[in-house]
Amino acid sequence: MRLSVSVAAASLLLSSAVTSALNLAQALKADKDLQKVAALNIPQWSQTGNVSYVVCAPTDSNITASTDPKLLGSLTFPGAPTTGEAWHYQIVTDVSGTNTLVWDNYDTTSITTPGIIHLRTGTGTSVNVRNIQADNGLIIVVDKPIPLLQKPSTTLSYLSSVNTDATLVTNSFIKAVASAGLTDNLDALTGYMILAPSDSAFAAVQSQVSALTPAQLKNVLAYHLVPKVMYSTNYNPGILPTLNGQTLDVTVDANGPVYNGKGHHTLADTTTTAGVIHIISAVLIPSNLDSFNGTWPTPVTPSSSAAPAASGTAASQTASAGGASTATPKSAAGSVAASGLVTLAVGALAAWIAL
């Protein structure tokens, strides 16, 4: 469940954090468990004056123990929360514009205990274990390093491996893409919203899908790809283009966006190198199965298809306003509308492990 948080609750978090008269850089260096993050020495951590930042930092032991070579480093973004609105469900993007996460599920019922803040990427979730209040912001110590964004096929396979609910699993969509020979093309997408029907959705139209010709199947799959990155936090009704050249009609109800009057989000805002994945409750069939006016992207070579490296070194990173563009969706099932994007500065994991 995604919960909003009151002004009082947000203030309580800040007051319940370990308080320090040090700035963020000094507080990180003073904590024996955060030395790898402290070594990144992001310039904003030492800024004074009318500035405030939030740093999400995994511990040294969690960094060392991680077996995932594709990880984000420490996350830094401006605007330490002073009101409840700052802690609503948000989409947050780093300064390179290549790494986007969901700031999710602030649990007001356990505000002084671990596990109340969730940073969700396409292939993992990190939660806080403790907080440190510095004089220019807040350090949120998280339980694991945050993975880099992965290609769509990897992200969809991960989601299907960690979920058992057929409304959240997309094995049928993955198999359909593979049978059409389009996995590499899907992974080559950039700047797209992927509407991936759940296994439940495919089961409901299995006979119709089974009767499709190979060309028609490709056309149906392309109809689920929107050349625009749109998150669930600010949806408006309208018409969306798709890769196959036809359009989707989007309406909005109490549970969020509805595509062509039947498909709604069952899991929204799963970030990927392609853009964002929304798992939806229906297979969308274009009005003309034999009309395809789009162009599938050319698959990239294996050497260039890997997930992007962490964006820059500690010396070169900044935390400026901006980030990936967001269109206008209304919140998906249970999401709380957010005030906008926040920018993150990303630390380089390689620098930590080399320590």
Rank of each mutant, 00 (worst) to 15 (best):
N234W: 06
V177M: 09
H264E: 11
N185V: 01
S200T: 14
S232P: 07
V226T: 08
D253V: 03
L34H: 11
L349Y: 15
P214I: 07
P299E: 08
M230F: 11
D165E: 15
A327L: 12
N255D: 14
G275D: 01
S20R: 07
S61C: 02
Q317Y: 08
G263T: 14
T213R: 05
Q150S: 15
V276W: 09
S311K: 04
D187L: 03
L189I: 08
A345M: 02
G275T: 09
L349S: 11
A21C: 06
R120M: 12
A222I: 00
L12M: 11
S110M: 11
N105I: 09
V102F: 08
S320C: 03
I91R: 05
L3S: 10
A39D: 01
A21E: 06
D253M: 01
G84W: 01
L22S: 14
Q90D: 14
T190N: 13
I111M: 07
I116L: 10
I42V: 12
L148M: 14
I279M: 13
K262H: 15
A204Q: 11
T183E: 11
K175T: 15
T343E: 00
T301F: 12
T167L: 04
L355P: 08
S287W: 01
A321M: 11
V250Y: 08
V54H: 00
A315L: 13
N234L: 11
K32L: 04
I116D: 04
D187P: 03
L40I: 09
L119A: 02
D143T: 03
T272A: 09
N131M: 13
T301L: 12
L72F: 13
I111Y: 12
W45A: 00
I140T: 02
A309T: 10
L34S: 07
T155P: 03
A10P: 01
A268R: 08
D143R: 07
A324H: 00
A188S: 05
L221T: 05
Y231A: 08
Y231R: 07
I279C: 12
N236M: 11
P78A: 15
V346D: 13
V37E: 07
G97V: 06
N293F: 14
Y53W: 07
L156S: 04
S66C: 03
T19Y: 07
T295N: 11
I91H: 02
Q208L: 09
A324V: 06
I239K: 09
A211H: 07
A314R: 06
S179T: 14
N136R: 06
S179A: 15
P237S: 15
